[in-house]
Design a protein around this nucleic acid. Structure first.
Lengths: 225, 225
DNA sequence: GTTGCACATTGACGCCCGTCAAGGCGAGCG
DNA sequence: CGCTCGCCTTGACGGGCGTCAATGTGCAAC
């Protein structure tokens, strides 16, 4: 299960030009099929991933969100390098945007994916695992989102990010999105996010080098309680 | 896209004994591979769907939930006839339970699914669409869950149910779960659910034949506002 | 019958958080 | 430098919802 990290590494390696590790077989087929795309911050990319296409985030981050008639924005999912996009049926109510300028994705058309999957059982399993990972991500965010208090949401969000980012030091994480995005992701107000962060900082649970770079001093604060 | 209803009909038909419509090909393979299982209310079924197995709900309903250390229960997903279970990696933190006594599911092992998918492109597409539908369901519930006010959550939940149940009359829906389940699904208190229902009833938007049987008198109340 | 239980509803109270408002801070730019 | 513009933080206020408590209702058992 959970081959996504491997999947990401595979894609990242294979998509590099002049890749010495490129071998014949599934890998070579993937690098042939993938079309790398980069786009600027706040740029919508519905045209990029349309008609059942699938994409893998290589760098930066992508946010998927919906706009309510109120004007309120709800961020459904934030995909970081290694995550996959596009398994869900494309819904006109949802939008995709690059979070940062250095965002790059690898695009596959639906036909390409089917061809690749049909040609190799290993590739097929990888694709399936990526879809399963997307479901797992949504389910876990639902767990975060459904927390009772806003502070628990923020704590759970930090915990989930610490788990997903998998940096060298698990204690230091760099948030991929701003406070406003976090607020729209958790369904709470920006001020509440800021207050929760300040509260955690005052209690000594975290340390903020910058608002985006967080050092976790007390990991037990992020677990369920 | 969205072949799930067809998928459900196909399965339901094919799993009936002495089915006159059973034909050779993908359908016959499915009825041969599926193992029908029924289980009683509140009975956990982790053993039933384990190790990457996939199941289709035939009757009744299944709730997937997590238990927090608090004892608080969060219902992640409620699957009704036609929905699929088990695409996500099995997580020990999640539990599956039958909601009613007449709950029946059709189980496939992972090997069976792969064999079926490999043998028929149509079956493969059906499986993929079912996984995509699971993602769509989670994303839409995230939209419901992230509503600001509790009354909006209840209204949006009724709207989503009215869309998913697809009964003969779209205006009359039968909720598959109790108020307690709804509360744990939406992350709000039972009393708030009840108050929201009463509020909608007083305004004339809905009519409650029984607490579970709801007639929608003003559909515009269920849409976004 | 009535006993028991699960589910549903209604009311009162208190607190968390959304809203509004103001200010700080750093980056980009003329 | 001075200006603007995101982004972040902090404070005050009020309403919505969680909590606690009590009552109502329908069903099954016996």
């Amino acid at each position: 299960m959970r081959e996504t990290p491997q999947c990401a590494e595979l894609f990242t390696r294979l998509l590099k030009p002049n890749n010495p590790d490129a071998e014949a077989g599934a890998g070579a087929a993937m690098i042939a099929a993938a079309r790398e795309t980069r786009w600027r911050r706040n740029q919508p990319c519905d045209a990029v991933i349309a008609g059942g296409a699938v994409a893998c985030v290589l760098s930066g981050a992508v946010r998927k969100f919906a706009l309510r008639p109120n004007g309120q924005r709800q961020i459904i999912d934030v995909t970081v390098p290694g995550d996959f996009l596009g398994f869900a049926p494309s819904d006109p109510a949802f939008f995709l945007e690059a979070v940062s300028n250095d965002t790059r994705i690898a695009c596959f058309t639906r036909a390409q994916v089917e061809t690749l999957a049909a040609g190799s059982a290993a590739v097929s399993a990888l694709i399936d695992n990526c879809a399963a990972e997307a479901i797992r991500r949504l389910e876990h965010h639902l767990l975060v989102q459904s927390r009772v208090t806003a502070r628990e949401k923020v704590r759970a969000y930090l915990g989930e990010m610490a788990r997903r980012m998998k940096t060298a030091h698990a204690k230091a994480i760099t948030l991929p999105i701003t406070r406003y995005d976090i607020a729209d992701h958790l369904g709470i107000a920006v001020e509440t996010v800021s207050r929760a962060m300040t509260g955690l900082r005052r209690r000594g649970s975290i340390r903020l080098k910058t608002p985006r770079d967080i050092e976790i001093r007390d990991p037990s604060m992020l677990s369920d309680s």
